[in-house]
Design a protein around this nucleic acid. Sequence first.
DNA 1: TTCATATATTCAAATATACGAATACAACAA
DNA 2: TTGTTGTATTCGTATATTTGAATATATGAA
Lengths: 107, 107
Amino acid sequence: MNDDLFGMHAELCKTLADKKRLKILYLLGEGEKSVSELAKQTGLRQANLSQHLAILRLKEVIASRKDGTAVYYKIAFPKMVKACNLIREVLLEQIQSRQKMVRGVVK
Amino acid sequence: MNDDLFGMHAELCKTLADKKRLKILYLLGEGEKSVSELAKQTGLRQANLSQHLAILRLKEVIASRKDGTAVYYKIAFPKMVKACNLIREVLLEQIQSRQKMVRGVVK
DNA sequence: TTCATATATTCAAATATACGAATACAACAA
DNA sequence: TTGTTGTATTCGTATATTTGAATATATGAA
């Protein structure tokens, strides 16, 4: 079996497996932004933001471009955001189905 | 901002961020299977397989059903598999674009 | 050149995760 | 009951990940 691919696939998924990085991805889904814009909008400390951006960049989930002293980031593969959105839909379905279960017991 | 949702979202993504669990998901994508079938097809040790199944079950990515002494697992939300497939597509695109870059340098 | 601003990197400590080994549990047969 | 088979859980250890603090780098202005 294609075992290596599963390994690489898992590596790519790990990239999404963090609250802060997901927030960054959603913000970048709105369009290209500079690090300082992202800092404001995420509320993360500069160094920590930079660390997460580095992780996303190394996994080629985002791409960077330098302009003067600023660095602009954008989504590298839009499909990745689509995948994120699907997972969020699953999350919402899970929440809904949990609520139904509770109602079933309580009512 | 909906910070808690990002946290839950990340938790759900973590579920996918493992080579062995991805393999399990893809096998279950073919249809419901018992633990022993999964053991054969993944080559994982029984205890380790069970640990990963427990993680997937707790996050409600898969659902279980008992029949006699056997336990059958299946995908709980098909969208989750769709999301996986999208991520794998991104991976393949990344691999392709890396090959192009290398060719660009070598040729 | 020196200074200020924007961004990145390194390191150590805290925390989280995965694994094997051992054990437990549950269903059924003898 | 005892044994057997299929599955789950617990625990200790190894490994990986995340974080803040400190520091480094790069760009442009004075």
